[in-house]
Design a protein around this nucleic acid. Sequence first.
DNA 1: TTATAATATGCAATCGATTGCACAATTTTT
DNA 2: AAAAATTGTGCAATCGATTGCATATTATAA
Lengths: 342, 342
Amino acid sequence: MSSKKTTIHDIAEKLNITASTVSRALNNNPRISDTTKKAVLNMAQDLNYQPNNIAAALRKGKSQLIGVIVPTINRSFFSSVIRGVEEVANQLNYRVVVSQSNEDSDNEIATLNALVNARVDGVLVSIGKNTKDFDHYKNLIRRGVPLVLFDRTTNEISTSQVIIDDFLGGYMATEHLIKQGYKKIAHFTNYNKINIYKERYRGYIEALKDYNIPFYNKLICESNMQLEDGRMCTEQLLRSGQKFDAIFSTSDYAAMGAMQVLKENSIKIPEEVGLVGFSNEPFTSFTDPPLTTLSQFPIEMGHAAAELFFEILNSKKDKLIPQKTVLQPKLIVRASSIKQRK
Amino acid sequence: MSSKKTTIHDIAEKLNITASTVSRALNNNPRISDTTKKAVLNMAQDLNYQPNNIAAALRKGKSQLIGVIVPTINRSFFSSVIRGVEEVANQLNYRVVVSQSNEDSDNEIATLNALVNARVDGVLVSIGKNTKDFDHYKNLIRRGVPLVLFDRTTNEISTSQVIIDDFLGGYMATEHLIKQGYKKIAHFTNYNKINIYKERYRGYIEALKDYNIPFYNKLICESNMQLEDGRMCTEQLLRSGQKFDAIFSTSDYAAMGAMQVLKENSIKIPEEVGLVGFSNEPFTSFTDPPLTTLSQFPIEMGHAAAELFFEILNSKKDKLIPQKTVLQPKLIVRASSIKQRK
DNA sequence: TTATAATATGCAATCGATTGCACAATTTTT
DNA sequence: AAAAATTGTGCAATCGATTGCATATTATAA
């Protein structure tokens, strides 16, 4: 029943021409006459021809596949980036192959190899928190496989990347709180200081400095930045007796934890404590009060990453200058940090 | 610099054997001596050999790729399903290629064809809301391409599928509200009645019947089930003067819209109006009050879908009986619907 | 009218791994 | 010791599309 799939040879045979001609006709090669092209196209339709990309990939050495590795796919930020990548890729007749590292270094390497073996034409990666060794990526570049890093990046690898200006993000969040009249601003950051957290932290410090607000080490809490960690940090702050009137958390989840604990302790947000998160997770607009946060424009980040990828792909391999796209984060002001009404 | 990638021929040459032997050795073929196998493996390591899956795929007619089509990837439910699929697939050395239909029928078809041309070994699909014509899927099956539908399915296509028991979900939600003492339960459902919404609606009706609660058509609001729609439905209910003391919304987003409007009107949840959503979106635990909802176990659904896929793949094509995996939803009771304390 | 260019198509190798069949070498059976 | 079975490799075709080069045909220029 399922007669074999039709190939260009079948088309060629029916039309009494060769497969080369069919191939050229299908690829709209100018050396083929319009008459032949039409005949081929019609016959292809009649025979319900479906090109075998695998065969083409083997011959051309290009699979039309882009690999994307993220720590976890079911986080709004990452799935949105993937969405963005896919939008650009599909436009150019590329498909997106996704893999998760689960923040595990070994897994990240294994998955990277798997993608390479599948002969993806390049890889877009957001590096896991625990990855300290970048040799595999360096090898990849040496072997000429296009690589683009996004969000979770490192300067140890010389390749194109797209990030948001996390320093600015940290600065904006802190400045906003200061301008609202908050003076003792706690900061929750990741204990594992990969680029993004480091930068946000720097922004926080810088803003304090610019506004002559003293920095207290006791107001810093390092953790894994999940909801539970945010709860813990907040409880710790409360127990310590250290006064604070605002929290800038570098993750929305930890901010949510803080919100819960504050509410449980009948501390009013934003009147007594202002709260700012980071990432604009979908839930932040649904909390009570809604949470001020920073949007990282994940879909745009996906677009940018894909564009950088295609730039590498289309460039002469020898004179390739790594590009860096820096997106501006945007402060989304919501009730959790509005002390003054203007 | 980038010396060509090593192939089995390079290994063969170095060892003075043929490529066939190398291939067999790498695939651990029992007809190859252990000595040779070891030599091949070592040489492969030395030359940093990376198998070319594309070549193998062409020869074997299997790409080790699974296509997944979802309406949108950046929705918690769908990205979690994909996560589940990926977990099973990776285990079996398969990769996952994702595509979005954006709820657009034409796009869904185009994307399906693209995946087929990429020679994925099969496709897992959650059908778009607006897809009414299933010919493309039927063709796919006729051509012997394994197809598994999940969540958004249809009985018009004879193929394996995995769904949750939406009828039961609707029933459980409604019964829970009834048992809490709510009597006039509104229901928000999708105007486009694809399988899942139809079933939940049926469950709602059945529960009312079982508990001798009259059904009022005026308590039903059909919409697109986004947040705005939930707001609209709720405002409409309020304006209409139709009394109601609970809302069972078939989407968490619409439920959230309802929560907002109720709060804006100073209507107390759960005291005056009980609220139940559907899907257990991550934000539902963060609202105030936290929202009662139903978990669909998306990751497990992904696992199940992948398993069904591999069953098809490994079965004799002629005697293939479509399987249906039905997962049980689970009621997650939170404050939004707890009127009585037991 | 002949030389030259342009046009349209065919030939055959190629991408890299897999696999049915053949065959030599060795071991086991009778 | 001859026949049969087992073991280990090699040969060559194959998967389907692409492409450099050759060639035949027609159109244009000299």
